[in-house]
Write a protein that binds this DNA or RNA. Structure first.
Length: 569
RNA sequence: CGGGGUAUGGCGCAGUCUGGUAGCGCGUCUGCUUUGGGAGCAGAAGGUCAACGGUUCAAAUCCGUUUACCCCGACCA
């Protein structure tokens, strides 16, 4: 591709709307343009990358025997009413009417449509297992689209659905998908992790997420190098501390802590380490009242774990000031487990503390030197907190690491949730009707493009992994308009590399060297070769990998073959 | 949906408080010069100042209404 023929507008300045690196760089390098909130046009350069992700994904789907189909983007309301999700899916579902006032939605996902296909087409267990996939535009009316294409309302997703007689078959195919997804991200050259995940609203028994590691990721993921444990933070168990609790020391006394409402203020004021100050959160209970959750001051409550406890209301909500006053007869900030007459759950780590500080259930007062079993009853300990870096791994292989990740794939064992609500059955070998087991598997194509940039960039621009780059090599011809030798050499190199199967971007624009070099860094192709009068005098071209600090000189005569070897993919 | 902010040429911004001929940088076009890290000079095109309504001799500027977009939060296969 000749850059002079590509209507590419790179921006020197970043549009004001862009916050994170991938969004900024995608706008600056001309990969995408925004149409409206959460809606983007994919320009030639960006679309080439999206197509690469599609291609790799399609190949891996075909390798595990999934069949590609294309379902409608617009779905009739009846189907969604049948599954119950016309209401349950909420405002994320974009609803519309046609001229006949019939109701439709723009598909945010396709369980309903595929289950309808399956119940019509599949009659016998002999046709199972079978799996279908499509690569298609989805629309979810997100409350707050952000981060460019990372959380757009309209986006491209590869979604797959599998159908089975029996859970064993589902489990087998689920394993195939897990491998196929791993291969996709492996081939794309991304640093990723597969983690246990919450199956959430969609239901089902088992699910895993694929995360591309990046500091800007919205999710926290936890894993251990020494074993195969890996999970989304919301699911990661926090094990009880090892060893015996310290022995009680001095008697419990009351301390004056005027106006200290945060645990940090209290710890500082009492000159205690944060982990020795226990915080007591009062949260709303199912059907009124409150429940107390006690954690170490340096630990965070885990919503999924907390709402899993009996009595605790879902979603997790802190009690208001009035409810706090009623339960503990003090303002928020001074609540403690001593003589507290509501149901109290204590996190394992908090239950392991001795001689700790906590709220005294009186305004401006905290207790110090408090001990379980002495000043208050032995606690009922449960796992309540988010795991933290360095915790023991549940897999037993060492300590946990934590990193931020961007969710680019999610695979589920759905079971019979949809086949039951929509009555999708086949006849088994005894001629009896059975609800099919289902799996569903999503991979965010456009989000993967953004995640790749998020993981691979520097202050100058994008650094594409070899496999994802829109072109693998750029020829930067300096002063091409004035120097015949440069033009001839560059043209010849361009032709040779193309004939050797390299995807080449040829910067043949009549622009200044600074502009061309800056654009090359911004666009971020892995291989760059500079053709200049200066080099040609010595019979050399200059080669540089986007990740390398320094350039190397290649003999002009041998350059084409050498570069073709490096850049062919 | 709650809170905060913004809207002026393709992009980034000033001008608004204190009403009086709409400006700067980048980009674009033409010409000449220049050419290894976003060149120089000369010239040019391009804006109903988000929309609607009001006040005024006069509104980008003051008042009102609306819309769009962004940020934080809640939300989120």
């Amino acid at each position: 591709m000749r850059l002079s023929k590509l209507p590419l507008a790179t921006l020197r300045e970043t549009p004001a709307e862009a916050e994170i690196a991938s969004h900024r760089l995608m706008l600056r390098s001309g990969m995408v343009r925004r149409l409206a909130s959460g809606l983007f046009t994919w320009m030639p350069l960006g679309w080439r990358v999206a197509r690469i992700v599609e291609r790799v994904t399609r190949q891996e789907m075909e390798r595990i025997g999934a069949h590609e189909i294309l379902m409608p983007a617009v779905h009739p309301a009846e189907l969604w009413r049948e599954s119950g999700r016309w209401e349950d899916y909420g405002d994320l579902l974009l609803k519309m009417r046609d001229r006949g006032e019939r109701e439709y939605c723009f598909g945010p996902t396709h369980e309903e449509v595929i289950t309808d296909i399956a119940r019509r087409e599949l009659r016998s267990y002999r046709q199972l297992p079978v799996s279908f996939f499509q690569i298609q535009t989805k629309f979810r009316d997100e409350i707050r689209p952000r981060f460019g294409v990372m959380r757009a309302r309209e986006f491209i997703m590869k979604d797959s659905y599998s159908f089975h007689l029996g859970e064993e078959s589902l489990s087998d195919i689920y394993g195939d998908y897990r491998q196929a997804y791993s291969r996709v991200f492996e081939r794309l050259g991304l640093n990723y992790r597969v983690v246990q995940a919450d199956s959430g609203e969609i239901g089902g028994s088992r699910s895993q997420e694929f995360h591309v590691l990046a500091d800007s990721g919205e999710d926290l993921i936890v894993w251990c190098e020494g074993d195969d444990f890996a999970a989304n933070l919301e699911l990661a168990p926090a094990l009880p501390p090892e060893g015996d609790r310290e022995a009680p020391g001095d008697a419990m006394t009351e301390a004056h802590t005027p106006g200290m409402r945060t645990i940090r203020q209290v710890a500082e004021h009492l000159d205690q380490p944060l982990e020795n100050c226990l915080k007591t959160l009062l949260v709303k209970a199912e059907g009124g009242g409150v429940v107390a959750l006690v954690l170490r001051g340096d630990h965070e409550v885990n919503e999924l774990k907390a709402t899993g406890l009996p009595e605790v209301a879902k979603p997790l909500a802190l009690a208001n000031a009035q409810e706090v006053a009623q339960a503990a007869s003090c303002p928020p900030g001074f609540v403690g487990p001593v003589n507290l007459s509501v149901t109290t759950y204590v996190d394992h780590a908090a239950g392991h503390r001795a001689n700790f500080a906590c709220g005294a259930n009186r305004r401006d007062k905290h207790f110090v030197n408090v001990n379980w079993g002495r000043d208050l009853p032995e606690p009922e300990c449960v796992d309540l907190r988010n795991a933290v870096e360095g915790d023991r791994s549940p897999g037993g292989g060492g300590s946990l690491q934590i990193a931020r990740g961007i969710e680019v794939g999610h695979i589920f064992q759905l079971g019979d949730k949809y086949s039951r609500s929509m009555n999708a059955v086949v006849l088994d070998e005894n001629g009896a009707e059975q609800h099919m087991q289902m799996g569903c598997y999503g991979l965010g194509v456009t989000r993967t493009v953004a995640a790749a940039i998020e993981q691979n960039h520097d202050e100058r621009g994008i650094i594409w992994p070899e496999a994802m780059a829109p072109f693998s090599l750029v020829i930067v011809a300096l002063n091409i308009a004035r120097d015949e030798e440069v033009r001839a050499t560059a043209e010849q190199l361009y032709a040779e590399l193309q004939s050797q199967g390299v995807e080449v971007l040829f910067d043949d624009r009549d622009a200044s060297p600074g502009v061309k070099l800056a654009d090359a860094d911004l666009i971020g192709l892995p291989h760059r070769v500079v053709v200049s009068a200066r080099g040609l005098k010595q019979g050399t071209l200059e080669y540089k990998h986007r990740r390398a600090d320094d350039a190397e000189r290649l003999s002009a005569a041998e350059a084409a073959d050498l570069l073709a070897d490096r850049a062919r993919r």
